[in-house]
Write a protein that binds this DNA or RNA. Structure first.
Lengths: 140, 140
DNA sequence: ACCATCTGGTTGTACCGTCGAACCATGCAG
DNA sequence: CTGCATGGTTCGACGGTACAACCAGATGGT
């Protein structure tokens, strides 16, 4: 459908998905780091390679990403038990607090968006988003 | 809603909106240029400043973007009639052909995505996308 | 035990994409 | 004509990603 095409592009631009650093939170946080924080917070303890898989990023990218988060004092690297190569990522206390703040900011932003949608359509839109995410889950 | 949050993030990652150069078309085209091509093709003849407004980008960004497109031989710059400052962007013949090819590739990709959605939900999802784009249209 | 291979990470290089600031030229209002 | 606003360009900086080269630890076959 052609209208879907335009709608998606319009959403991307309007919502600012194009703009690298427009993460609305206390500190202007790079988007990729925000995504990583969500994943680490959700997993509690996660292998770097697994994080790369979930974010669909190269291991080199994730390595650098992780270095940034460690630099912020939000993440600790631990040696993976039973595998001398692996690195386990864990949130520090500061990291957990930051993750909570980020979740708040993100929720605010999304709430603001959804508030502009008539109530009777809102749940349909949320469901559609889930469907879309699901559909995009498989191979490319 | 928290589920909407996760769905959106999942969609962003799964669909590869994070990855700068994953434009599926004949030539590996930078995403921003693809967006610009759509807009120019749609308008036929557009002021650079207006393009910036529609893409929600800085004029400096659009200036470079335009230079790239001109470099590809896809766009001509014309002087705006009645305003010595303005620049009018117009597609060349090659540019129009490229725009058509891009539209095809984009449609293919989106079709592939929508094909993974059960038929009875598909139209709802498309409508929801439009609603979302609409909602994200206003001030941030 | 040993070597080849695989796997997880790191570092180097390159590129895209964006912004803000400084700057220039043109238009416009008083 | 002076001062301000507007459209564009150029400069420098940085985020974000990929690929390739490399290293270290794991694994499996002989």
């Amino acid at each position: 459908m052609d209208t879907a095409q335009k709608a998606l592009m319009r959403f991307i631009r309007n919502f600012g998905l194009h703009q690298p650093d427009r993460t609305p939170c206390g500190q202007p946080l790079p988007v990729s780091e925000a995504h990583a924080m969500v994943e680490i917070a959700g997993a509690g303890r996660i292998r770097q390679v697994e994080l790369a898989r979930r974010l669909r990023l190269e291991k080199s990218t994730v390595s650098r990403l992780t270095a940034n988060l460690v630099g912020r004092g939000w993440v600790d690297r631990e040696a993976a038990a039973g595998d001398g190569r692996g690195v386990l990522l864990v949130l520090t206390d500061a990291g957990a607090a930051a993750a909570a703040r980020l979740a708040d900011a993100r929720r605010d932003r999304l709430t603001a968006l959804l508030d502009r949608i008539p109530g009777e359509q809102r749940s349909a839109v949320v469901r559609a988003l889930q469907t879309l995410a699901e559909a995009a889950d498989g191979p490319s």
